[in-house]
Design a protein around this nucleic acid. Structure first.
Lengths: 263, 263
DNA sequence: ATTGAGAAGCTATCACTGTTAACACGATGA
DNA sequence: TCATCGTGTTAACAGTGATAGCTTCTCAAT
């Protein structure tokens, strides 16, 4: 029998008694979040969490109802904690840049908290979406509404938000499904570019953007300039096995060059 | 600890014995697939599967190693079964239309088999992708390669395939996370539109236009393919001075090869 | 100050899970 | 004929989520 919990009790002795329950609740959530982050979902068992928090399994059920309640609390806590560690919200200069920052927030959250991210978007039984996912969607919806307010949104806000969220979760899932050293770092940017050009329209027909922060304009300009080159390289690469005019060695070398061009 | 890795050794043992084993294996997989479809992931327990298949739990471990092996077999079976019930593959008229049909195949698979879909794309522990997911990606990659062969692909094949897959899984996940009557039916089409306009270019916006694909003739397929090769080589040669990715020597050598191809 | 009520701790337990060991049966191949 | 190996079957082990029921403690009301 461990008498270790005396320390915690004395720690909270100065606080009000009502905070004892909240303290224990918070500690359980934090411990569970730690177990989830280090050991994945299977590491979060009621007994393991209770032991690490210095209590017993029934306490979890008294405070959270059941294990799903605990996981929901962990998800909410983890998401809120992550958001709290980030710039709370941008004022606003360019609404599309603001959306991009929200996008990057989501991507980074997924890549740094895979277990939480899976809980958030991929663990749900059909029909129910966790509150944290709804909160994330609200963040996107708010920023998209600013784009709409600027008169640059092509589709309705709800569809645009779902598209951004779907693109983000899909990109993160695709990245997570592959070893870290084999991930294509261009995927998130490419996905955002695809969605943003579909749901928005240019401010003017002429590119008046002077700030270098927006990579959209420069990338698009460069992309259209070299699109023909890349398309030609892709086409040649697709036909590579049929290039009887080249030797095996030449084909191999050409493949490397074309990959260098297209990537 | 599974000590059963001799699955492929007794392939040549006997006919009756092998068929008996395979029969049992197939029945277990089918039963497990049924349980997964009706009751979700939690309904697939070794005892439940064994009982429904008329055997005992240890049989599963002899045939599949462990439960993950069983689930992998179920996923493979479910995906293959779904594909078998669909038009096997299109010949080719418009490569983009072909990609769209592959896209719709994936979306429909996810919506009609949520549990399998989650197993495929959302259940993976970081770093490992199930074989069925790789197979699905290959379907997309093949069709995208046809777009590249037509000289209309803006980005490299791998990135394009990952984008399409990410957009598809993200869209399905977003749809599944919401009650069926609240789903926005425009989401999949909108996502495809976003991706396809980003990764491809219009047929007439490139100097490698392969309008010859519609030319008539007996050897149309092969003839147009070589025509596409030559067009791509010509386009690449025209843009040779802009290929900053290559050194002077490489550019010179590439020039010789392209000349050899086009002549 | 006593008391009563309710919250919390704690043990034991249930039904179930994945997984494995151990034994019995049957056919197969030498 | 015999030894072997695949298979069927039972039993068991270690954990899991979840509850019941007991004990202890706190604290406001009397």
């Amino acid at each position: 029998m461990g008498r270790v919990e005396d320390l915690q009790i004395e720690e909270t002795a100065g606080d009000a008694a009502v905070s004892g329950r909240d303290r224990m609740r918070a500690q359980i959530v934090e411990v569970a979040a730690g177990l989830l982050a280090t050991g994945g979902r299977d590491a979060v068992s009621t007994r393991a969490v209770a032991a690490a928090a210095g209590t017993q399994a029934p306490t979890i059920y008294r405070l959270f109802g059941d294990k799903d309640g605990l996981l929901a609390a962990v998800l909410e806590y983890g998401f809120a904690t992550y958001l709290a560690g980030k710039p709370p919200l941008d004022p606003t200069a360019d609404p599309i840049a603001d959306l991009r920052s929200g996008w990057e927030l989501h991507i980074e959250f997924g890549l740094t908290n895979p277990a939480l991210f899976l809980l958030m978007y991929a663990d749900t039984q059909p029909g129910k979406r966790p509150a944290a996912a709804e909160a994330g969607l609200d963040i996107l919806r708010t920023r998209i509404r600013n784009i709409a307010a600027a008169g640059r949104l092509r589709v309705d806000v709800d569809l645009a938000a779902e598209m951004v969220q779907a693109a983000g979760s899909g990109a993160v899932l695709a990245l997570l499904a592959v070893p870290a050293d084999q991930r294509d770092p261009r995927l998130p940017d490419a996905m955002f570019e695809a969605v943003i050009t579909t749901i928005t329209m240019d401010a003017n027909s002429t590119d008046t953007s002077t700030t270098g922060t927006s990579t959209t304009g420069t990338n698009t300009a460069r992309a259209t300039r070299t699109a023909g080159v890349i398309a030609a390289a892709n086409a040649l690469q697709a036909h590579l096995p049929q290039l009887d005019e080249l030797t095996d060695g030449e084909r191999h070398l050409l493949d490397e060059w074309l990959t260098r061009i297209t990537h």
